[in-house]
């Protein structure tokens, strides 16, 4: 009797776990998937963004637009004509969605200090800033996910002149695009004001067309 009691509990545990798995591990996530796909398919499928406006609207899949990624996930942009995202620690070259993550470097790490110094120099040179000019912190630090889709408003404004010049656009047009791509704090108090880099670059591409 005493020898079989623990085994009996184990087998009861296995059977209860199996029953609960059917409810919690299959019925629950599949039901939520069903509801999500019906009620908010755009969100549920990753907030995809296409080269034509209204990417998540009906008919966008078969239209002339090309899906270029997700509204939520940052992607690499290099070259003067693009607004640049934040530095990224995801994968070797950054913005690798199969390797999300942070640098995990501490605030006193000399390697991080050296990287920040190098990014400061590059950022100031690229955007024609003077040597001592303040650079927003988000421009010289890597985010937590390595897929940060946003930059700070100040960061976007400091890049505007360079982008306008490279695209031969009026500074006012670029400034307007930055404003349009800016989101404030939710309810005025949650999170931080920010600019979605992909949205902003897409808007500039559409301006040219």
């Amino acid at each position: 009797m005493t020898a079989t009691a623990p085994l009996r509990q184990l087998f009861a545990g296995l059977r209860v776990l199996l029953a609960l798995t059917l409810v919690l591990g299959l019925a629950y996530p599949l039901a939520i998937t069903g509801v999500a796909q019906i009620a908010a398919p755009g969100n549920a499928n990753g907030s995809r963004v296409s080269t034509v406006a209204n990417a998540n609207g009906p008919g966008s899949e078969g239209g002339a637009g090309r899906v270029v990624g997700s509204d939520l996930v940052g992607q690499p942009f290099d070259g003067p004509q693009w607004f640049h995202p934040r530095p990224s620690a995801a994968g070797e070259d950054g913005y690798d969605t199969l390797a999300s993550g942070a640098s995990n470097l501490g605030p006193n790490n000399p390697d991080l200090a050296a990287a920040v110094q190098e990014r400061l120099t590059t950022y100031r040179a690229e955007n024609g800033l003077s040597a001592g000019q303040r650079v927003p912190a988000d421009a010289v630090t890597a985010g937590a996910s390595g897929l940060d889709p946003d930059i700070s408003v100040e960061n976007a404004r400091l890049q505007s002149a360079r982008v306008a010049r490279a695209r031969s656009l009026a500074p006012a047009a670029v400034a307007k695009a930055v404003n349009d791509a800016t989101k404030g704090r939710t309810l005025g108090i949650l999170g931080e004001p920010r600019v979605n880099v992909l949205r902003l670059n897409l808007a500039l591409d559409r301006l040219r067309r």
Binding site: R86, A102, S103, N104, L105, G106, P107, N108, N109, P110, L112, A113, A115, V116, Q117, L120, R134, V135, P136, A137, D138, V140, T141, A142, G143, A144, S145, D148, P149, D150, I151, S152, L190, G191, E192, R194
Partner: peptide, 25 residues
């Protein structure tokens, strides 16, 4: 934001997302 690197960067944004900033993190 104490620390050599954080002081240099001008804010404790290493390992933080722009949408959350310091407060929400």
């Amino acid at each position: 934001h104490p620390g050599i690197a954080a002081q240099l960067a001008g804010g404790a944004m290493e390992g933080k997302e722009a949408r959350f900033g310091v407060g929400s993190s």
